[in-house]
């Protein structure tokens, strides 16, 4: 799904001075609220151990399925795990997965895209085939089999596996976006001039290409994080996400699915956080795009 978002981002003109963009963003209340939510979630995730009232894996025996109250602010699940604490640690898992996977996808995608778009020729052909193959490939198959191969035995290992699996599936979208941009920029006068002047490729790429394609990339990444957080939820649904009992919002939703009718609050809390975060990233991405597109503000 990352692809289409990326293509959407690719449609945006590049090259607004950053100060102006920031001013435009500040004028947009939706952008500010979204940014506020993202920052809040990030802060909660970082200070989770300080404000969590129980360890995420503590079973409060005798207090299973208790209603929200003073002992457990948001109640407990069927095993007696504190929902509030797990939501905080879940924020850690879900946000980390979102950020790390998007960054990984970004690195691979940009490298591949520039190679294909700027170098062209045989690079383009080979990388084109690989991205095509990755696109045509059933994503989940990859994720499931990777978990089988890497066989994580620790929570950290399972984190890494999820990162690798999702990043491997996610990079081709970014690669296509960057390739398209690189193709366009390659023939621009300033790049051709630099090349004619004997400037090295590496310098051209870092000085001319990358800065000019930055804004569509940033937008794509913001929107992508939301997609990754949802993808992690799907992996959890299949039972191959982050290892139990470590919580992620996706896992918490899956675990409380059978309680949908008896304890709707159990599924409501993580769904709410997941939904709000995904929305915030999406809205922020949108606002960023609008801010980056000068024509929208004439």
């Amino acid at each position: 799904m990352a692809v289409e978002r990326v293509e959407e981002a690719a449609r945006i003109a590049s090259g607004s001075p950053s100060r102006e963009v920031w001013l435009r963003l500040r004028r947009n209340p939706v952008a500010m609220i979204s940014a506020g939510i993202i920052v809040l979630m990030a802060v909660l995730a970082i200070i989770a151990p300080l404000i969590a009232r129980y360890p995420y894996d503590y079973l409060d025996r005798g207090y299973e399925l208790s209603a929200p109250g003073s002992r457990h602010w948001l109640g407990t699940d069927h095993l007696g795990q504190d929902v509030w604490s797990r939501l905080l640690y879940g924020a850690r898992a879900s946000l980390t997965v979102g950020l790390v996977v998007s960054s990984l996808g970004l690195c691979i995608g940009v490298t591949m895209g520039i190679l294909a778009g700027y170098r062209g020729g045989i690079w383009d052909t080979i990388l084109g085939r690989i991205t095509d193959a990755m696109f045509a490939f059933p994503d989940l198959l990859f994720a499931i089999l990777l978990v089988g191969i890497l066989r994580p035995t620790s929570p950290i290992g399972s984190f890494l596996t999820v990162f690798v699996a999702l990043a491997l599936v996610g990079w081709p979208g970014m690669a296509r976006l960057v390739r398209g941009q690189a193709l366009q920029l390659r023939n621009k006068e300033f790049v051709e001039a630099a090349r004619a002047a004997g400037v090295r490729d590496w310098r051209i790429i870092t000085r001319h290409l990358l800065p000019n394609m930055l804004s569509p990339i940033i937008v794509a990444v913001t929107v992508d994080i939301a997609g990754v957080i949802l993808a992690d939820a799907t992996l959890s649904f299949l039972g191959i996400g982050i290892q139990p009992p470590y919580p992620s919002w996706g896992r918490m939703i899956r675990d409380s699915l059978p309680h949908l009718r008896s304890e709707p609050l159990l599924i409501l809390f993580p769904s709410l956080l997941l939904g709000v975060t995904v929305l915030a990233f999406n809205f922020f991405g949108d606002a960023l795009r609008d801010a980056l597109d000068p024509r929208l503000h004439e």
Binding site: A226, L230, A233, T234, F237, G250, I253, R254, L257, I267, S271, L274, G275, V276, V278, L279, N282, F283
Partner: peptide, 11 residues
């Protein structure tokens, strides 16, 4: 439109 996609399919 966004609300519809911010819930995982399995929910």
């Amino acid at each position: 439109v966004l609300l519809a996609v911010s819930l995982p399919t399995f929910v």
